[in-house]
Write a protein that binds this DNA or RNA. Structure first.
Lengths: 247, 247
DNA sequence: GGCCATCACGAACGTTGTTCGTGACGGACG
DNA sequence: CGTCCGTCACGAACAACGTTCGTGATGGCC
């Protein structure tokens, strides 16, 4: 029962080099696994498997799963470069910064979920917070409400990144379902969010008159478009500008 | 091995009445468990234990854990009453509706987490969506952007409910730590969010000048106050009003 | 050449969500 | 009144999870 495979094990230490196995390697493997398998599929065991080791080895470099995901979140933010003076005035730069953050986070499945449970305090999160508040101050936002404004923008980034991730997931599902024609059609309609439209459509018009009347505008296609994103960001920035001064 | 306790089991069917065990009872038990033990502590086994039964019995009434939590979320929304004509104009009514939704969800720990993963489609969620969009239309918001505006408000409600839940959790932690004086002080400082302030405080002032300059305004106390909530809602509603028409 | 600190990892523990098969209850039927 | 059968409840089990413990090997230092 002790020796199951026989004479020499498969790879006890046949390969002496392997990988040095550092904290950075563990975090990078976790983020890579988020990309290829999805946020929910990232487990300590699978991260260890990707590094060709056992789950216990990870705990030398990482306290627990929460800390690992928090570090992966910050690593995802590392690719965001704050706009410079060549990118226009403070508002154009702020829109660019927010857009880049959403693109970076949304490109790594639901990694933005990390920012909901805990306030991110990684180096990249702090770097972007600094950049955001600097731009807000340049826009004339009062010092006393600047942190509040950054908070509002942060919530916008997080929720928009999750929306983007969901859209990309649906798109990939559509692309993957290239087999049968009927399956493709079903996937297409799913991607269009028509299951939600179906729910709205089956609602009695007398109890839900407004939903019924606005249903043409409630398609998920319109909700996911580029117009929607820019409109929403415009709403928030203009709202912030209207409340620049302290109440 | 078959009979472990002896002659007659503890309560195989000693009490023939017990509880009828319906779908409503399961959902109510789940929400009750959220209240007294927290969202993360709600497991199928504990819900079953609260109903004096086994975990397998729940699956007769509920497909899986996700559906159960979604139903609990909708049950939490059931206590929200949409404001009527006596509550003022459309804006006052909208602020009241949003405030009630936040209070209802935030009062049940992190139940609002359900609304992040999936779009809520329960009867109460639909009822409040109808009420929200009706008020928005009354405010002159264009039909084409009304669903978008409702979406923005929904994100605001969800994130604010999670913030409120976290604050209530901290307050309860402070109240529960009435034993040792030192423990109380530690809990107090935790509730004040000074661990976050400490992180900001230890940042080098030359790399993070804006964070350093704004640190007095970044206390969690100011972030959790009533002023902050009303300011934020004002930002969003005024932003929506500025973008009433379609782009 | 020998020793010791460090690191990697196999195995295990306690939980989780979910499923299967058995068993008992209660109404319908002969 | 006896019997049968459908329905529901639940004990037990399975796979997978996060995390911890103890052992074995590695590699640098004396």
């Amino acid at each position: 029962m002790t020796d199951s495979t026989g004479p020499v094990r498969d790879n006890p230490r046949t390969r002496p080099a392997k990988a040095p196995l550092s904290r950075q390697a563990v975090i990078a493997a976790a983020l890579g696994l988020v990309d290829e398998a999805g946020y929910a599929a990232v487990t300590m065991r699978r991260v260890a498997q990707a590094l060709d080791t056992g789950p216990a080895s990870l705990y030398v470099y990482v306290a627990d799963r929460d800390e690992l995901m928090a570090e992966a979140y910050d690593l995802a933010l590392a690719e965001v470069e704050p706009p410079g003076p060549v990118d226009g005035d403070w508002r154009a730069r702020l829109e660019l910064l927010v857009g880049r953050a959403i693109a970076a986070l949304g490109g790594h499945d639901d990694i933005a979920l990390v920012a909901i449970t805990r306030v991110p305090t990684g180096p990249n999160a702090l770097r972007l917070l600094e950049a955001t508040m600097t731009l807000l101050r340049a826009g004339g936002v009062d010092d006393s409400v600047c942190p509040w404004a950054a908070d509002v923008l942060d919530q916008y980034v997080t929720s928009s990144a999750l929306e983007l991730a969901a859209r990309l997931r649906d798109q990939r599902a559509v692309a993957a379902a290239g087999g049968a024609a009927e399956a493709t059609e079903e996937a297409m309609s799913r991607a269009a969010g028509s299951e939600l439209d179906a729910i709205y459509g089956e609602l009695p018009a007398d109890v839900y008159p407004t939903i019924h009347a606005l249903r043409p505008a409630m398609t998920t296609a319109g909700r996911n478009g580029h117009l929607y994103a820019t409109w929403k960001l415009g709403v928030i920035i203009d709202g912030l500008l209207a409340h620049r001064r302290h109440p």
